[in-house]
Amino acid sequence: MLRLEGIEIALGDFRLRAEMELAQGQSYAVIGPSGAGKSTLLGALCGFVPLRAGRVVWQSQDITTAPPGERPMTMLFQDNNLFPHLSVTQNVGLGIRPDMRLSVEDKDRVAAALARVGLADQAGKKPGALSGGQQSRVALARVLVQARPWVLLDEPFAALGPALRLEMLDLVAGLVAETGAGLIMVTHTPEDVRRIADQVIFVDDGVARAPEPAAELMDNPPPELKAYLG
């Protein structure tokens, strides 16, 4: 259980409050208007945005001030998820050992993860030699070897075409189902929500509301959400 207790974020004039409990193994979609603070909320969970008040608690352990690398979560950003000067294998290997000292078993895990995302034959290439969809797969292979309890997606597939984006989302859904990880993803598309989210966190007007079941919420949206969805 990941608990956000009375969280308050203040960045300049921007304010965001959140109070919620997130269950591992569930998939949460974070939706809301542009600038409402969806990315900021994910950044705060990951440790990139300092909290003005409140606590983040993971399994009764306070991780409010833990550095990003020591939290039970991994995050994919909109861009720059891969190092262009390192090979596919190296990019994935960093998920196991940040100093790249990989044992034989580690290397096997990297190879297995690459095989799982369908890139077994691309291991030696640099990201620049891959297509956009393949680059996303490399990042997902790294998420797989990191094996953190939570996976956070800040629209990493935004630059892909619609079909490719859905393909990636299905791959993500499959991966978190296999590893039992929880998923928190920012999205703009109601279609994505219906496709893989169990719960929806609606962010608007300085508040990230507690999650509600996705299907019911999307079928009977409250007025603010209705205004956003159009």
């Binding site: 690398g69 020591e70 991994t74 995050m75 950003f77 390192l86 960093l94 940040p98 100093d99 790249m100």
Partner: peptide, 23 residues
Amino acid sequence: DFGRVTETLGMRGWPLWRWVILP
């Protein structure tokens, strides 16, 4: 560009210089 991803990977000190900054 890469500050955040190196942080989520927990890269600090020498590994950060060796694998990201120097290249």
